[in-house]
Design a protein around this nucleic acid. Structure first.
Length: 482
RNA sequence: GGGAUCGUGGGUUAGCUUGGCUAUACUCGCAGCCUUGGGUGCUGUGGACCCCGGUUCGAAUCCGGGCGAUCCCA
């Protein structure tokens, strides 16, 4: 009874939607805001976002990206300069029409994305080929007034993200940039979040408005749905033309630049929660956990002094290398503390009682599976380091297994529908390139083409389209998605 | 886009069919006591009927609308 009130009551396997909502609330990550579709990100949730951000931002800076900040409002006339952007985002733009009591002469869009406010400045800043490549990134929030249902972190009307915008001399340079950023997103997912991803292209009809190519990294959730985990767009020259981003080359000829943009949002948090967490609550890989290690002292009246001194000393030593919490709260028994730290997703728990003091050791317990190990007091920090690596490895292995077991091949309408319906996951099949063939699957089972192979010239796995039977031009990956 | 379920202290909830006294219980917070190998016990105390309108002598309960949440289908 008590357990049901404080902990997670829904089972991940039976009711993933409700389970997810419970983890988000009870692990203290977010609350619902008074306006539908908005959330309040609580310190525990924001701390994870900050760590994600720190990793990615570091890699950006190492690879020539500078941070900047642009206004959150975009004049309507700016937004209209690239017609695809207008059409693509029109239904979900929030507008500011008044400043105080005064109606504005020109209404202002709350940025749904910032190409149209950043590009005009890149245009001013780029004069010669020596100014290229030009790279700016901003960490900010954007607003998209989605009509669809919202879910904390996965889909909210306002969300936090980073958006990078670059200009390059050649198509090839821009392509290299696009792939560099996609690679960094993949690295973030794999190394930091312990989630394997698959890289690919979006089909024509699902590209970013106006883009030459939209690339994506997709991650598979345990309920069989795919998440677009990050995107990187080669924008070609359409934005440069619309916003006049030109440069003078070595021969003093004026040329149009090639631009890119790329973004990763707090949807990554949603994917993280959904992937690793369980019926006990949140599970977070060590690299992201606000608290990596919790030390819980366990004593009886006559052992109190010995145990607490030993445990406090141990915690202090570990604190030099890890993010450590020493949980010496009075009036809470160990069981309570264990449950609470499991709910909060602390990757490693260290139990210290009379037995450990006696043996000059410590008991290390892994969050993902409750596995115990004993470590010597000497060299405890190295043992903790190893244990944290083991925790990461366990999480990655489980996620990787889920992915590899859920990429299947199918051919023919019934087989595609049946395979997705029965197992979820990805189904690859030949595709003729016609959107209508995707629509046919989508209408039936709400699965769509989430990805095409990165290499345009790759031979399709089947000679004919899995839906209509015409000649296939490429391989399509169908999946249900968030 | 269509359908279903739901909204009561911070959390979980009883009461609603058949309108009626100070709105139930657990948990939680605070003060104090107790003390620890998987959600310990005791005392005191704090805190709620999603919003607007309607019916009525009287609405948490009935009716209408709105907002919000979850799930299923397209």
């Amino acid at each position: 009874m008590t357990e049901q009130e404080l902990g997670i009551t829904e089972r991940k396997e039976h009711n993933p939607g409700e389970w997810y909502a419970e983890v988000v609330r009870k692990a203290g990550l977010a609350d619902y805001a008074p306006m539908g579709g908005f959330i309040v990100t609580r310190p525990r949730g924001y701390a994870i976002w900050e760590r994600l951000k720190r990793h990615l931002d570091g890699w950006f800076k190492e690879t020539g990206v500078d941070n900047a900040y642009f206004p959150m409002f975009i004049p309507e006339s700016y937004l209209e300069r690239e017609k695809d952007i207008v059409e693509g985002f029109d239904p979900e733009v929030a507008w500011v029409t008044h400043g105080g009591r005064e109606e504005l002469d020109e209404r202002l869009a709350v940025r749904p994305t910032s190409e149209s406010i950043i590009a005009p400045f890149i245009s001013q800043w780029v004069r010669s080929h020596r100014d290229l490549p030009m790279r700016v990134n901003q960490w900010c929030s954007v607003v998209r007034w989605e009509a669809t249902e919202t879910k904390p972190f996965f889909r909210t009307k306002e969300f936090l993200w980073q958006e990078g915008h670059t200009a390059h001399a050649t198509h090839e340079d821009a392509w290299a940039e696009t792939m560099t950023r996609l690679g960094q997103y993949e690295r973030l997912y794999e190394e930091v979040m312990a989630i394997p991803g698959m890289k690919g292209r979006k089909p024509e009809h699902d590209k970013f408005p106006g883009a030459h190519t939209t690339t994506t990294i997709e991650a598979l959730m345990p309920d069989g749905k795919s998440v677009q985990a990050g995107t990187s767009h080669h924008l070609g020259t359409s934005f440069a033309e619309a916003f006049d981003i030109t440069y003078t080359d070595e021969e003093e000829t004026e040329r149009t630049a090639h631009t890119t943009s790329w973004g990763l949002s707090w949807r990554a948090l949603g994917a993280l929660i959904m992937t690793h967490s369980d019926d006990q609550g949140l599970v977070v890989p060590p690299a992201l956990a606000p608290t990596q290690v919790v030390v819980v002292p366990i004593w009886q009246e006559d052992t109190e002094t010995a145990v607490t001194e030993y445990a406090a000393d141990l915690a202090a030593e570990l604190d030099e290398r890890f993010r450590v919490e020493y949980d010496d709260r009075d009036g809470r028994n160990p069981g309570f503390k264990f449950n609470e730290h499991e709910l909060h997703g602390v990757p490693l728990r260290i139990e210290v009682g009379p037995n450990e003091v006696e043996e000059d050791g410590a008991t290390l317990v892994h969050r993902p599976d409750g596995e115990n190990e004993t470590a010597d007091r000497d060299g405890i920090a190295d043992a903790v380091e190893d244990a944290l690596e083991t925790v990461y490895a366990k999480l990655y292995a489980a996620a990787e297994e889920n992915l590899t077991e859920n990429v299947r091949e199918a051919h023919g309408r019934g087989e595609i529908l049946g395979t997705i319906g029965r197992h979820g996951g990805y189904v690859k099949t030949g595709w003729c390139g016609d959107e209508a063939c995707e629509a046919e699957i989508k209408d039936e089972i709400a699965a769509e083409i989430v990805m095409l192979p990165m290499d345009r010239d790759e031979e399709p796995i089947h000679e004919t389209c899995g839906v209509c039977g015409e000649a296939a031009v490429e391989t399509a990956y169908f999946a249900k998605s968030y």
